[in-house]
Amino acid sequence: MKISEIMTEDVQFGTIPGTISSIYEILREQKLSGVPIVKKQTGELAGVITRSDLIKNPDEDQVAMVMSRNPITAAPSEDVTSVVRKMINNNIRRVPITEDNKIIGIVTSADITNKALWKINNTEPIEKYMVRNVPTVWEKTPLPVAYSITSFFNFKSVIALTDESKASGILTETDFINESEVVEEQTVHNSSVSTEGDKWTWNSQSVMYILKNKLQFSDKLVKDVINDKLISVTRKTSVKECANILRQNNIEQVPVLNMADEPIGLIRASDLMHAMIE
Rank of each mutant, 00 (worst) to 15 (best):
E139C: 04
S168R: 15
T73Y: 07
I210K: 15
S206E: 07
I264H: 04
I26A: 01
K40N: 09
Y147A: 06
I92D: 06
I104V: 12
R51Q: 14
K31M: 03
M273H: 05
S165N: 14
E124A: 06
M1W: 01
R85M: 08
R247C: 01
T50N: 10
P144M: 03
D175S: 02
E25K: 14
S191H: 10
T42D: 11
L161I: 08
A75Y: 12
T81A: 00
L266S: 08
I16L: 10
I72T: 15
V95H: 03
D79P: 02
V158L: 00
Q216I: 01
N91R: 13
V225E: 04
L32C: 04
L54P: 14
R69Q: 12
N250V: 09
E25G: 02
L117W: 07
T15M: 11
P135F: 02
D111K: 03
T201W: 00
I120N: 02
I88K: 00
P71A: 04
K240L: 08
Q62G: 02
R85I: 10
I277S: 09
L161W: 06
E99Q: 11
K102R: 15
G34W: 11
K2E: 05
S191N: 07
N91G: 01
V38T: 08
V256T: 04
I106Y: 02
V35R: 15
S33R: 13
F176M: 15
K31G: 02
K212H: 13
I106A: 04
S68Y: 03
R85D: 11
S77K: 10
T234E: 05
E185I: 12
E139M: 07
V48N: 15
L117D: 03
N244F: 12
R268P: 04
R69A: 10
D175V: 02
K31S: 11
P58G: 06
M87A: 09
P142Y: 01
D100A: 13
K128S: 03
